[in-house]
Write a protein that binds this DNA or RNA. Sequence first.
DNA 1: ATCAAAAGTTGATTTTTTTTATTTTTTTTG
DNA 2: CAAAAAAAATAAAAAAAATCAACTTTTGAT
Lengths: 233, 233
Amino acid sequence: MKKVKDIPSCLDCTNAKTCILKKLPPEEMEKIEYEKGVHFYKKNNIIYREGNRNNGFYCINSGIVKLYKTGLEGKEQIIRFAKAGNIIGYRSILSGELACTTAKTIEDTTACFISAYKLTEMVTKYPVFAMELMKLTCKELGESNKYILDIAQKTVRERLAEILLLLIDNFGVDSENILQIFLTREELANMVGTATESVIRLLSEFKSDNIIELKGRKIKILNLQQLQRLGSY
Amino acid sequence: MKKVKDIPSCLDCTNAKTCILKKLPPEEMEKIEYEKGVHFYKKNNIIYREGNRNNGFYCINSGIVKLYKTGLEGKEQIIRFAKAGNIIGYRSILSGELACTTAKTIEDTTACFISAYKLTEMVTKYPVFAMELMKLTCKELGESNKYILDIAQKTVRERLAEILLLLIDNFGVDSENILQIFLTREELANMVGTATESVIRLLSEFKSDNIIELKGRKIKILNLQQLQRLGSY
DNA sequence: ATCAAAAGTTGATTTTTTTTATTTTTTTTG
DNA sequence: CAAAAAAAATAAAAAAAATCAACTTTTGAT
């Protein structure tokens, strides 16, 4: 007897450790189970757009989403990535503003959709959840503030090193020390806040300094310590 | 019959319109009245330091505070300003982290101090307050994210124009169109994220383009429209 | 498998911005 | 009020990064 696979259930979600929804009491979890929607997105699809009014938020079940703002002439500035267990799209609901970023998948992604109404209800009804969500938001705010400092004061080289370290932290490396997120050079540039050519050039430099090894979009970390020195992490 | 002046009371605080504490029920306001501390700071004094563990937050009663991160070689990056009616220092309490910025007065300032314990109590007990605080945090997050885009993609000239517009929004102009916050060129540079000399040069340019007029730290706005065009606001 | 499009690479050039150095002005304070 | 300190202004040189242009490789769709 086989259960309908692929449709994620909050109750036995494998992202339980990191997911904020687990801070809700079990009876509430069950209710959400009925009310939520489950959405599938192919790679490179937009979940919501900067400027939209979100009427709900998303809990990533699997896949990776990039959150970016669009600048003049359409250049993307990646603000952060979201992976399994993370929530996205809640900021604008809580602030009563329009979405400040566009959310686009960079891998096939499954996400649960929970309505804005439900979110405010959860915050109002469950102080533990409210505190936890507040904690999450405040951490994000701290990270954004750090980002401001970095972009304002560090060189492109330092920032690239730091971004690589951040990605290692976030997505880890496999047994061969290969970073487990595969971004285009352009996406890396859009994180660092620089031109694609600059990223290419610097990656080559890191390679000739034996800090990394490149194979297409795969980045193998050869010398973490030196990378940390470069990013003054 | 004269009351003790200078000691601000939440109950008849003149910043009532903007202050988040006003979202608490009256009986709670009265309690805070007894429990809070009132602190006075001279110009250029530090309220708390980046890396500190804050055991409370501050509600600015009068004055202006700059919140900045310190980068390599001690260069400040101003993240935002706080004025009467704003609260500072709450982020690290809620995230359980260390303070991510230093708070320093740029004018004589009076601030009320409320303990971390009280803050969590307020969030847990009063959903309306919790929602309002969440809203505030999420707005701040949106602003920080916008800042990232600007610093990453705009030129120094555009950023300076935009910072001036932001300051006008925040602190207003008097009847003579003079911006009502008086920053050093260095502080402006620390907001824009550039060298002091660049700010000086660009301000001179703005002046010769009849966009602004300078008299020491006083900046008179002559052509708001053109400033907006420059900052693509 | 082939073709077109997208992504990646490289070198040369130009622009922007920072740094350094020096002078002038303003502000502070004894 | 005057000396000292801090801030502002200006110019020139150096460095960092962006842009431009040409070309190669990879990827995805038919």
